[in-house]
Computed example of a mutant assay.
Amino acid sequence: MATIFTKIIEREIPAQIVAEDDKHIAFLDINPLVEGHTLVVPKAEVDYIYDMADEDYLALQAFAKKVAKAVKAGIPCLRVGVAVIGLEVPHTHIHLVPLNKMDDINFSRKKLNPSAAELAAAADKIREKM
């Protein structure tokens, strides 16, 4: 069964996509920790990041680096934090979280519930910097 991320990749579910190439996609988390919280995902379904072939893993990290630079340029923050948890969706993904304080990347805190317009505005800020 296709994951929710595959459904986004195949455009069966809408998402605020900020970057894409032939093997990767980056889109905003719909329940972000902070504005600009972005998920970077390989298009191939691999459940666990360390099960990826080395070449694919390195390509994903390079793509995430490009996206992180755009996130930092588009969303006011001191840094962009990186987290790979891998328990929520059985499809490898990297969280890029704009950071102004340590608690910004605390996954146990309450998530935001932005409107579609707020998500679109954040995505535009990031896309402008890609």
Rank of each mutant, 00 (worst) to 15 (best):
120 A>K: 14
21 D>E: 00
12 E>K: 15
30 I>C: 00
17 I>S: 12
47 D>N: 07
53 A>C: 08
51 D>V: 01
48 Y>T: 05
27 F>E: 11
19 A>K: 10
48 Y>P: 00
87 L>T: 15
15 A>N: 05
95 H>K: 10
81 G>Y: 11
104 D>H: 08
15 A>G: 13
102 M>A: 15
9 I>W: 03
73 A>Y: 09
21 D>K: 04
17 I>L: 08
14 P>A: 04
112 L>F: 05
32 P>L: 02
17 I>A: 04
95 H>P: 13
52 M>V: 02
18 V>I: 11
85 I>Y: 13
84 V>L: 09
36 G>S: 09
48 Y>S: 02
48 Y>K: 12
116 A>E: 15
2 A>S: 15
115 S>T: 15
58 L>S: 14
115 S>N: 12
50 Y>V: 03
104 D>P: 02
15 A>C: 10
41 V>D: 00
61 Q>D: 12
93 H>N: 12
112 L>A: 08
45 E>G: 08
93 H>W: 09
16 Q>S: 09
91 H>E: 10
15 A>W: 00
21 D>S: 01
87 L>E: 14
53 A>K: 13
14 P>L: 06
45 E>P: 03
93 H>K: 15
20 E>Y: 00
85 I>C: 13
119 L>C: 06
67 V>Q: 06
85 I>H: 14
101 K>Q: 15
49 I>C: 05
129 K>V: 04
46 V>K: 12
74 G>R: 02
62 A>H: 13
62 A>C: 11
101 K>W: 03
110 K>H: 05
59 A>N: 14
86 G>Y: 07
7 K>Y: 06
100 N>T: 10
112 L>G: 07
8 I>S: 12
80 V>T: 03
97 V>G: 01
7 K>Q: 14
27 F>Y: 14
